[in-house]
Design a protein around this nucleic acid. Structure first.
Lengths: 115, 115
DNA sequence: TCAAGTACTAACAAAAAAGTAAGTATGAGT
DNA sequence: ACTCATACTTACTTTTTTGTTAGTACTTGA
């Protein structure tokens, strides 16, 4: 019996798929930051101050590989590159909205119960 | 300047809060599995075959610490313990629904574009 | 010649998450 | 005495993720 054969909910489980695409510490933060248009690397780094440059580039690359963001090189010197959401990338924004609803509701109940 | 002072979106960022509560490989899978009622450890392990017993127990404990699930010990021998969602825990179910919508829409677009 | 500016790369280190395997405790039944 | 069943615990290893630091490439302009 191979590993995949006993995957809970099967290999096409939407939870697993989502985790592969936007799981981890930074991806949703990046996607959410890109909601308003296109941004240069340095701009993103200012908007998300506690991410390292390496992680930012690395995650942008992964997101681009999955067609969630697009990288546009303007071919100038010094380099000018910017990133924006693709149509697929904006599919992730409702996810962020759900997370906000969850976090807010949880926090409210938590404080109501024992705060 | 402390680390927290430069957290992107601040320390109460809903994305970060959500990741702390239900981030990781297993928590949402467990919560989703518990949607239908209460289950014993061994039942959960059958429903999620590729999780190790250790991870299952460990994650259930973390979820219980955050009041997302409740552990009920029936005080029998051999031990009989079951777990179910709390009210807070069921707040996470819409999150799973959003993930399914995302994954389905992404997959559909992906196949339409290059499948 | 040399600094400035921007995006990116590479090598390495640390930390966090997940996995494996072998115990422990309990009391009923044999 | 000994096994069974169940829920856990402990120690340890491996894998994955994240972080740190020091580069590179390329032109413009002092």
């Amino acid at each position: 019996m191979s590993q995949k054969d006993k995957l809970a909910f099967g290999p096409r489980c939407p939870i697993r798929t989502t985790l592969e695409l936007v799981g981890g510490k930074w991806k949703l933060l990046i996607l959410h930051t890109l909601r308003g248009g296109s941004y240069r690397l340095s701009e993103l780094n200012k908007l998300i101050p506690d991410i390292s440059e390496k992680m930012l580039i690395q995650e942008l690359k992964v997101l681009a590989d999955h067609d969630l963001v697009v990288r546009k090189n303007h071919g100038e010197v010094p380099p000018r590159v910017d990133y924006r959401l693709t149509e697929k990338g904006s599919l992730a924004l409702p996810l962020v909205a759900s997370m906000k609803e969850f976090a807010d509701a949880y926090t409210a109940m938590h404080h109501a119960a024992q705060g």
